[in-house]
């Protein structure tokens, strides 16, 4: 076969096209890119702005109140005339409610996920998962009143001497609130474990439970830890439920049956009141917010290192 002449050598053929980008297309690309960039920058600037304000106001706060008082006082009374600034009071309440919520949500959530992933028929799974996700969509203020008006009376009937506002009720209900998150995300992680791994175990004579406990959960471990950590962050940051059900009296206690005030509940209390701008009370909410921010940051860092250490790779 001989080489044919180029088609554009024929008379009337269109002119050869240049490889240069047409101007119109270049402009269009530019116009598409700009809003995308702006959208990305909005979230970055917001984050930077929040951190900057937190840092600035916290700095101001520690100008007036020394750090050691913040860390060592055992009372929290910035709104009274005799002021104490022991963050440990609010921190203990946050830890108490979050820990209680974890005790409820982690085992239940993991068991629910194992059930959904390994035991439930596809029909049951299709029905249950959306219900769980609806549970995640209930406004937290509804949960708060559920805790105060439904759970607390039950607790009071079961355990005499339980106060109207108490940590246990809030912890239980936060646990219920984050349960769908734990189970749904854990189930996703388990569903991603290859079927071949399960079949290998079944073929060795493993029961369903052995497959779940010895193959699926270890293989999905990193995803499950990620679910747990997200849930803990949610519990630590939860505001409405604790503000409504746990009370607003800062008390340094380990008892779940008395009124307490968490870090988030304190911020709400001050923000809703008529605290003048720039006053010391006003600055306390930034100091508390900073402490809360550091707490969740520490949780995130901890979860990253846990993930890095325990990751089980599978093909």
């Amino acid at each position: 076969m001989t080489l044919a002449p180029r088609p554009d050598a024929r008379p009337g053929a269109p002119q050869r096209r240049s490889l240069r980008r047409p101007l119109r297309r270049a402009l269009r690309e530019r116009f598409v890119e700009a809003p995308l960039l702006v959208a990305a920058l909005v979230s970055i600037f917001t984050t930077v702005g929040i951190v900057a304000v937190l840092v600035f106001e916290t700095f101001e706060f520690f100008h007036e109140v020394p750090l050691w008082r913040f860390l060592t006082d055992t009372q929290w009374t910035p709104l009274f005339s005799e002021k104490y600034f022991g963050i440990v009071v609010l921190l203990s309440a946050t830890v108490l409610t979050s820990f209680g919520a974890m005790v409820v949500a982690l085992p239940l959530g993991l068991l629910a996920a194992v059930y959904l992933s390994e035991y439930a028929s596809p029909g049951v799974r299709r029905a249950v998962k959306p219900v769980l996700e609806i549970l995640a969509g209930i406004p937290t203020v509804v949960y708060g009143y559920f805790a105060l008006l439904f759970v607390t009376p039950i607790l009071q009937a079961l355990i005499p001497g339980t106060a109207v506002f108490n940590g246990a009720s809030a912890a239980l209900v936060i646990g219920i609130m984050i349960l769908p998150m734990v189970s749904s995300l854990s189930e996703d992680a388990m569903a991603a474990v290859p079927r071949a791994l399960r079949e290998g175990a079944y073929a060795l004579g493993a029961t369903r439970f052995e497959v779940a406990a010895r193959v699926v959960v270890p293989a999905a471990f990193s995803g499950i830890v990620a679910a747990f950590m997200l849930a803990i962050s949610r519990a630590v940051g939860e505001t409405m439920i604790v503000a409504i059900a746990a009370g607003q009296s800062p008390t340094l206690t380990l008892s779940p049956l008395v009124p307490i005030e968490t870090m988030t509940a304190y911020i709400v209390q001050v923000s809703l009141g008529d605290t003048p701008y720039g006053s010391l009370e006003y600055k306390t909410i930034f100091a508390v917010g900073m402490a809360l921010f550091l707490l969740t940051l520490a949780l995130n860092v901890a979860s990253q290192s846990v993930l890095a250490r325990f990751r089980e790779e599978y093909p």
């Binding site: 290859p194 071949a196 791994l197 079949e199 290998g200 175990a201 079944y202 073929a203 060795l204 004579g205 493993a206 029961t207 052995e210 010895r214 193959v215 270890p218 293989a219 089980e312 790779e313 599978y314």
Partner: peptide
């Protein structure tokens, strides 16, 4: 049934554990 009738699959499917634990797995669950 599956304990007495073993199976090897198309794609090798060891669990993400050590060589030793892979072999010991079946023994342990039994």
């Amino acid at each position: 049934v599956r304990r007495r009738i073993g199976m090897v699959f198309q794609k090798p499917n060891p669990v993400p554990k050590s060589v030793y634990d892979n072999v010991a797995f079946g023994l342990r669950i039994n």
